[in-house]
């Protein structure tokens, strides 16, 4: 039998990219921000990240073991979830709470729905939201670098309207209160650009999201730079809203998704009682992705649009 030729359907070659490589690149893109977090908030930031990553990988392995699924931890997606979850926590958070968050993200949101590719929402986002509800006190106990001005006393968003252009540099460098991975805009942007450059993500979602927030901020009479650089916007726009599983695939869909994110974020920030709206806007938009997908399909080559017009006329 050994000398028989192999017969399969074409194509007979595949590209060099793999799920694993993509996830590894996302991890790499998050690393500069992790370093910044350690510089700003101390070694606790590193320890907390290590704990959530280890917990996410463990929960992924354990739940698959229990459900008799193949061990998927080699694909690095749990590492990405762990890092993103940690980036959404204050560095002072008790470690056991981080474990709860990791459990919710990996077991409840991801594996119970079928594992990678089947989750309806971004696991790290749901983990963060659940924790923000359950551990409201600890989750908003933002540590702040010592010896700084009023900016450090709270997250900048809470006092956004009092901030002027003199705060821009502080916001860029992230030397202020907040969760550990959202403050340093420079490293987040660098990581985001790396992902765009390596074609892991398309710039469409982050650019439309940020642009929408900027435009609505201007319209609402707020400082757009402060709005863009504070809260979890940059982290959310580049790393969480671009999660493949829970974002649209077509350029049209990505535009709709980005605009929707911007509108909801601004609505929560400007009109709601909460200071921050990034995670809720991502969660809400995650839920409508299947509908966006259906309504924003690409035009197929040579397919006349007669059908579409008819449907449109009927409505």
């Amino acid at each position: 039998m050994g000398n028989k030729l192999i017969v399969t359907a074409a194509p007979h070659i595949t590209g060099a990219d793999s799920t694993q490589k993509i996830m590894q690149r996302v991890c790499l893109a998050l690393c500069p921000t992790l370093v910044a977090a350690v510089v700003i908030f101390g070694v606790n930031a590193l320890i907390l990240t290590a704990i959530t990553v280890a917990a996410c990988v463990f929960f992924e392995w354990a739940s698959c073991k229990l459900m008799h699924r193949e061990n998927p931890t080699g694909d690095f997606s749990a590492v990405v979830t762990g890092m993103l979850l940690a980036f959404n926590l204050p560095a002072t958070l008790p470690w056991w709470m981080a474990l709860v968050g990791a459990f919710i993200a990996i077991v409840i949101v991801k594996q119970l729905f079928g594992g990678l590719g089947y989750n309806f929402a971004n696991p790290a986002i749901v983990g963060r939201i659940a924790m923000a509800m359950g551990f409201a006190g600890a989750m908003s106990n933002y540590p702040h670098p010592e010896g700084l001005d009023a900016l450090a006393s709270a997250t900048p968003l809470a006092v956004a309207d009092q901030l002027g252009s003199e705060s821009y540099v502080t916001l860029l460098l992230g030397n202020h209160g907040g969760v550990l991975g959202e403050t340093c805009a420079i490293t987040l942007l660098a990581g985001g650009l790396y992902l765009i450059w390596t074609k892991v993500i398309s710039p469409t979602i982050p650019v439309t999201y940020l642009a929408t927030v900027a435009v609505l901020s201007l319209a609402a009479g707020r400082d757009p730079v402060v709005q863009l650089l504070s809260g979890g916007l940059i982290l959310g726009a580049f790393f969480m809203a671009t999660d493949y599983v829970t974002s649209p695939t077509t350029t049209k869909g990505k535009l709709v998704f980005g605009i929707g994110l911007g509108v909801i974020t601004c609505a929560i920030r400007f009109l709601g009682t909460m200071a921050e709206g990034v995670s809720f806007s991502i969660l809400l938009m995650n839920l409508v992705v299947p509908y966006i997908e259906e309504l924003t399909r690409q035009d197929r080559l040579g397919i006349a649009k007669v059908k579409k017009n008819k449907e449109g006329a009927g409505k």
């Binding site: 993509i22 694909d75 997606s77 990678l116 590719g117 493949y244 077509t250 035009d299 080559l301």
Partner: peptide, 19 residues
């Protein structure tokens, strides 16, 4: 082969615009 991660590369690469 592993799970589809819905990255959309297939749809964006398709010369005919199919998903």
């Amino acid at each position: 082969m592993s799970n589809c991660i819905h990255c959309g590369r297939c749809a964006n690469a398709c010369p005919l615009g199919l998903s």
